[in-house]
Simulated assay, not measured.
Amino acid sequence: MIFLNEDTKCVVQGITGKQGSFHTRSMLEYDTNILAGTSPGKGGQEFEGIPVYNSIGEITEQMDVNASIIFIPAPFAKDAAFEAISQLELVVIITEHIPVHDSMEIAQYARRMGCKVIGPNTPGIITPGVGKLGIMPTHIFNPGDIGIVSRSGTLTYEVASQITQAGLGQSTCLGIGGDPVVGMDFAEILQKFEEDPGTKAMAMIGEIGGNAEEKAAEYIAENITKPVVAYIAGRTAPPGKRMGHAGAIIESNAGTAETKMKALKAAGVEVAEQPSQIASVMKDIL
């Protein structure tokens, strides 16, 4: 397992909002170790037995926390992220539609502070049997030794479900986010899986647009020894097509499914033609 383990002590930023409250209940039902929440102006209240504070600064004066999940609306998400990054080790940003320049500042500040940021526009992270900081449905996951990293929330769920149905399980699953600018990238996540004794193989789910998968392929060739199985979504999309995510835009002949698949295969990665093939390939490997 990576990032989210038994020692993770979580804060929910925006715990009393519509999305924050709904998903906090789900995270608590999955036994996620949530110790506190923030909601400016509502400090002193409780939500589902969880104390609510006005700021993370107030929380850190009272208790030891090291991770946050953000359900703050896009116009205010940068301030919330900066507050969390300055004091915590892991920050998961669920929020969509954060302006690109805000995301750039968040990513830069996180690197400077040595904080791990997942997202924005991510389904989050789940370590099956331990907890989740995210919005994914928990019933499709099963504790195991396959790490999943993805740009697509929906495909994460599909692949995880098929791996579970195949009698296998996941060590940790996370979405890096579908925006053009995100915190941690494929290479950083794959390296953590490489170092994790509980992960034996990795599934990497990419999509058209940008060069994240090509960069990951270079990194895999030089640094990763564990088996990686990949799938690239959007193979039939024409140039200039946007595929759901702001980050999935093809420009000229760069960022196409073909260029990504070619780079990954050259790095020794087995590339599935369909997401449904990943589970069967994993069964053969493991």
Rank of each mutant, 00 (worst) to 15 (best):
E218S: 12
I208W: 10
I98N: 11
P99L: 03
A77W: 10
Q45H: 14
F47M: 09
G134Y: 07
A246Y: 11
I59L: 01
E96K: 09
V52C: 02
G240T: 00
N54P: 03
I98S: 07
G37E: 13
V65K: 06
D64N: 13
I285W: 14
D196F: 07
V92M: 09
T38L: 01
A246D: 12
Y109K: 14
K215I: 15
G183P: 12
D145N: 15
Q13A: 09
I94G: 04
I208A: 01
I72S: 08
S55M: 00
I278R: 01
I93L: 08
M261G: 04
Q62A: 13
I148A: 03
T225E: 14
V65A: 03
V11I: 15
K226E: 08
L88V: 01
S26R: 12
K9W: 11
G175F: 08
A266I: 06
I85K: 00
I69K: 12
D31G: 01
I98L: 05
H139R: 09
G198Y: 09
I220W: 14
T38S: 06
M204H: 10
A67L: 08
G124C: 05
E6V: 05
T172H: 09
V130A: 04
K262F: 13
M1I: 05
G183M: 06
M282W: 02
M184N: 10
A266G: 11
K42D: 04
V52D: 04
I224N: 07
P275V: 07
T199P: 11
A257F: 11
A84Q: 07
F141K: 09
I70P: 03
L90W: 05
L174H: 05
G44L: 06
I94L: 07
Y231W: 14
I220P: 13
G49Q: 09
P143G: 07
I208S: 00
D102I: 02
L155M: 15
D31R: 12
S252W: 08
M1H: 10
G175L: 00
G240E: 01
M261T: 15
T156A: 08
F141W: 08
D196P: 07
L133G: 03
M204N: 02
V92D: 04
A254L: 08
I70T: 12
Q162P: 00
A221D: 15
S86F: 00
I93E: 12
Q162S: 13
F76T: 06
A246I: 00
N121T: 13
E46T: 15
